[in-house]
Design a protein around this nucleic acid. Structure first.
Lengths: 344, 344
DNA sequence: TTGAAAGCGCTAACAA
DNA sequence: TTGTTAGCGCTTTCAA
């Protein structure tokens, strides 16, 4: 690999001049020299050493995509089509804009901070983080950050400073609409399935409660279908939930995957969807279209979410302060065949 | 961010000593100094500057994961569950071994080489490349390379030198088995569906031909269901293929996704799987389990493939020359419900 | 319009 | 056991 220094020597120029040509600081160099340098660069296929450049400029062109891996939920994070699509969108934007993506997956914020600062990442996209995780990152990392799907309350928001943004979804509204659709179809005993009670799923739970309220339906904690996502207890867990589902006419699930898994667990026990149980999912990913019956679900555009987050981050890296601290994308109900209309 | 130099100054030591402690070159430092330095490092939360380290050591701890993006087939590369799972496996291995993953996606080998050398990646995992693409990379990049699913003929193999390995699958055998299963079920008019005639799919095509031969079935080029994967022609394409399928009793598809899409296109035209048409897929990914009917398909373990490739690469980076240039993983038929037994 | 030289933070050969 | 110092390749200030 040839260096600037050698090039300068061979051309009888200084490194400054060569460097200037490389960076198109063409005002300071004579046209003739420019030509000479340019063609020589081509000839020797000069490739800069990014480590050296980064060291000299104190930046990196790296965008850190940080995933907080909750225990064993994400053994293979890409297996979740929502995550996969989103990362695809992020990657595309980063590449288009001439940045590089480095993935930091860890369940330990301290470790994440290590990675990020050791590589001197120019900006961060944070995913799967609760607000206090994100805040801990922010405390130590002063460059631009975009969160995806993190719920941050108005009070702490200020602590994130400028050069911060969250890209989220109207989860509450979406869930509310989905459940309202169920009540409109005559359902009254409606379960709520999730594996946690925080962040996004909490918002969706609130939407669920709201829809019940609107319809004058009492909520009992028994309605909560709590899922434990450890690999080996999954099946037993779904078996239980399928049993439990016999007392309900519908279940709203916080993800398409879970909706599909519930459907299958039910099928194995002779409970048919939608005849015996109506099921609604969330995300509208590939699962919902492939499964039988095709799933009624809340649509969101994961790829766009990722792409947008990355573009906004890059805007910030380039110096523009975002006008708002929160962008809320919208969801929309997609009606397919997993919900049955009950006679009133 | 504090530097080694400052630390040395504050401790009244030299940078060498500090550096030695950091790297555990503890034989050369007195226990007392070690303790002093270690606790100070903790206290100030020292994080090394990787750019500086890389520059000084001429390495990077980066493993480049290179995807050659064929035209518009991979608008969002992660949407393909095979790719997604494989990358998940790669990522996990890289992380576990203390390396970092950088993704380079491009349809241009020259550009890929730029990225790779500008970052001075310690090793490369090449995916979606034909042998001559891989060879072009090898010509310019002398550090360890692992290919995944690249078919390299024995003659050019030597040109890749040591520190090279391909991780592949017994595609031909797998396809042959799958098609043999069809012939055993009494099928004679069996189509072959793919979007290309090279590399992996070519091997599978050969397996398909072999199985036909074994069963004494003539092959005609009409049996080839060629797919054009551009987004907007996909549907029309499948419509056509579904029509064409009326002349066949079975189709072997080179991927689960295509198998599922064919199934749906057929369903839309009143052609039922497996009653009217038997379908076999390849990969055994999530699609095959979610779709209706569940797909009979050749299983392979994408995550393991990726993990293995990364581990082998890291072995090489650490200096060990692999014993062979090719590791061939095995596939296995998974029988579900998409194939019908014909009466003989 | 061009060049000299300092410095980015770290490593490692060599000296003490 | 510890310290001095010369790089690694590039950018950038300042001088010519």
């Amino acid at each position: 690999m040839i260096t600037i220094k050698e090039i300068a020597a061979q051309l009888g120029l200084s490194t400054t001049t060569v460097s200037n040509v490389i960076h198109g600081k063409t005002g300071e160099v004579s046209p003739e020299t420019i030509g000479r340098v340019r063609s020589f660069l081509e000839e020797v296929e000069y490739v800069p050493n990014i480590s050296a450049r980064n060291l000299a400029q104190n930046r990196s062109k790296i965008i850190g995509v940080v995933l907080k891996a909750w225990e064993r939920k994400y053994e293979n994070i890409f297996r979740d089509p929502f995550v996969a699509e989103m990362i695809g969108g992020i990657e595309k934007a980063i590449r288009e804009q001439g940045y590089f993506m480095m993935l930091y997956i860890s369940d330990d914020i301290a470790e994440i901070l290590q990675y990020v600062s050791t590589w001197n990442a120019d900006g961060l996209i944070l995913f799967c983080m609760l607000d206090d995780d994100a805040l801990r990152v922010r405390k130590k990392y002063r460059k631009p950050i975009v969160c995806i799907d993190t719920y941050i309350d108005k009070q702490t928001e200020a602590a994130f400073g400028d050069f911060f943004l969250n890209v989220g979804l109207d989860d509450q509204k979406g869930a509310c609409e989905a459940v309202r659709y169920l009540t409109q179809q005559g359902h009254k005993r409606i379960g709520f399935l999730s594996d946690n009670r925080v962040g996004v799923d909490l918002a969706r739970f609130r939407g669920y409660r709201k829809a019940l309220e609107e319809a004058g339906i009492e909520y009992s904690d028994r309605n909560f279908f709590m899922l434990y996502y450890e690999k080996n207890v999954m099946d037993a867990n779904f078996a239980q939930l399928a049993e439990k589902a016999k007392d309900f006419t519908a279940v709203f699930c916080c993800s398409d995957l879970y909706a599909v898994m519930l459907t299958e667990a039910c099928a194995a026990r002779g409970i048919k969807v939608p005849e015996d149980l109506s099921v609604v999912g969330f995300d509208d990913n590939i699962y919902s279209r492939l499964c039988r019956p095709p799933l009624t679900t809340m649509h969101q555009d994961a790829e766009y979410k990722g792409h947008l987050a990355a573009m906004k981050l890059i805007d910030m890296i380039r110096g523009s302060v975002p006008g708002e601290k929160e962008i809320t994308l919208t969801s929309a109900l997609v009606i397919r065949e997993s919900v049955r209309q009950l006679k009133r």
